[in-house]
């Protein structure tokens, strides 16, 4: 550009790219990658934006995966609730390049033998990934079927030697309004906080997830590390986790704080407990089975107790009134 050439001798030090912008250069590289129509930046092997996120490695198949039709990947990664990247369903994908996941570390805190700050590599190293196809039921009465890659959360938690006082596990999402621009608006309490009872967290169905559809998680789906609890409404499955605490008291979770009457701590999928906005008796399955205009007339299906995982998890709640503890 001629204008630049003219000014080349008069550049003052203050005009040189500020360090913070320079450090965010990968965000621009990632955005450029998207614009070029490449697969999501970081999916490319050796892409710098993903240097700190270890590859999935060999992924074994979980034998109990559901055989229902899977949601097409492009729908599961373009229709997202991730308010930190925007409140419209399409926003998280649009703003995905803002979320830099390199470097990434996870703080382990609270009632445990090995608290501390761990790099993502340290967190993931001992675990091999397994693909599990789960149903995902959103509190907004839609559902998807998604192949996740990850490992049981319990295997991770045990490594930090929780003490007898650890009754609950609390999770927090990254707090960084630059990388998660939705946090510039006080829509929810930031950082996003979720929690599980210890026995729920240790349940073999509860997963720590690093990938989906055979690839690393895209940012809009909660890269580089998220929770998946298939028998609870989707908002319990917190994304982009930077902190895990073992605590004695039931955590205050973001949605519960925002509307206690609407979003309970447990939030188990339950067709018999109606939400003040959405009847939970039925759900719209988003699986791409019917396409184009015929999708308008696709029938809803009945929602199953515990999202169809009742055989596995109902025992956790045998002495809990599920209407009062919704």
């Amino acid at each position: 550009m001629p204008i630049l050439l003219k000014n080349v001798q008069t550049i003052r030090s203050s005009e040189i790219t500020p360090e913070d912008v320079f450090l965010r250069r990968r965000e621009f590289l990632a955005a450029a990658g998207l614009a070029l129509g490449a697969t999501t930046a970081g999916m490319l092997p050796g892409s710098p934006a993903r240097a700190a996120v270890p590859p999935l490695g060999a992924v074994s198949k979980w034998p109990e995966s559901t055989i229902e039709t899977q949601t097409p990947e492009e729908q599961a990664t373009s229709y997202n609730n991730f308010y930190e990247l925007g409140t419209d369903k399409g926003d998280p994908k649009k703003n995905a390049a803002r979320l830099i996941t390199d470097p990434w570390s996870v703080e382990i805190a609270g009632e445990c033998g090995k608290p501390g700050k761990y790099t993502l590599e340290d967190i993931l190293k001992p675990h091999s990934n397994e693909e599990r196809v789960y149903r995902l039921r959103c509190v907004e009465a839609w559902s998807m079927v998604i192949p996740w890659a990850g490992f049981p959360l319990g295997d991770l938690l045990k490594r930090f030697e929780p003490t007898g006082n650890a009754k609950y596990v609390q999770f927090e999402t990254l707090l960084d309004p630059e990388r998660l621009p939705g946090q510039q608006y006080p829509v929810l309490q930031w950082p996003y906080v979720e929690g599980l009872r210890m026995d729920e967290a240790m349940h073999p169905l509860t997963m720590m997830v690093v990938g989906m559809y055979g690839k690393l998680l895209p940012n809009q789906s909660g890269a580089p590390l998220r929770l998946v609890v298939p028998w609870k409404y989707g908002f319990k499955s917190i994304k982009s986790i930077v902190k895990i605490s073992f605590v004695e008291k039931q955590p205050d979770t973001s949605w519960n704080l925002s509307a206690p009457r609407e979003y309970g701590f447990y939030s188990n999928v339950n067709p018999n407990v109606s939400h003040p906005r959405w009847s939970q008796a039925k759900e719209r399955r988003l699986d791409g089975e019917s396409k184009g205009l015929s999708a308008l007339f696709a029938e809803k299906r009945d929602t199953l107790m515990f999202n169809g995982y009742a055989d596995e998890v109902a025992g956790l709640y045998s002495d809990l009134d599920l209407k009062a503890n919704f």
Partner: peptide, 18 residues
């Protein structure tokens, strides 16, 4: 709106859109 539902495979939840 109807055109995008008929032609765009990215529309995940067309009833909600309409």
């Amino acid at each position: 709106g109807i055109y995008s539902i008929a032609t765009n495979s990215l529309v995940a939840n067309p009833v909600e859109d309409l």
